[in-house]
């Protein structure tokens, strides 16, 4: 569908990150960092060495974790860039 030198389908992305450190963010805002062991078509995820963060604070560690796919907002490669926290005010939006 979207072929081209620079296109990368979701399945290409998943092949790339399998077995690598990832950040998984849920719709609730909770963040999991760990190694992506595997996942399926529902975006159910199995992770290893999982750390659970709420508001940037580490609150739990799990050896293995299964995350039900319907809760997943995104799967991200782990970035070395420092997180920015920027507060703007609502009047920027009309």
């Amino acid at each position: 569908m979207s072929a081209g030198a620079h296109s990368k389908s979701p399945s290409d992305f998943l092949k790339l990150v399998l077995g690598r450190p990832v950040i998984v963010k849920l719709n609730s805002g909770v963040v999991y960092k760990g190694i992506l062991a595997c996942l399926d078509g529902y975006m159910n995820i199995a992770m290893e060495q999982t750390e659970e963060y709420v508001n940037d604070q580490l609150i739990h560690k799990y050896g293995d974790a299964f995350i039900r796919g319907n809760n997943v907002l995104y799967i991200s490669t782990q970035t070395s860039k420092k997180k920015k926290l920027l507060v703007e005010f609502r009047h920027h939006r009309q």
Partner: peptide, 22 residues
């Protein structure tokens, strides 16, 4: 960008797979 009562929180990411569901 996340809309919160305090304002808009931003976060920078290199590469993500975004779930289409939401």
């Amino acid at each position: 960008f996340e809309n919160t009562p305090e304002g808009i929180r931003t976060n920078q990411l290199d590469q993500i797979l975004l779930n289409g569901n939401n």
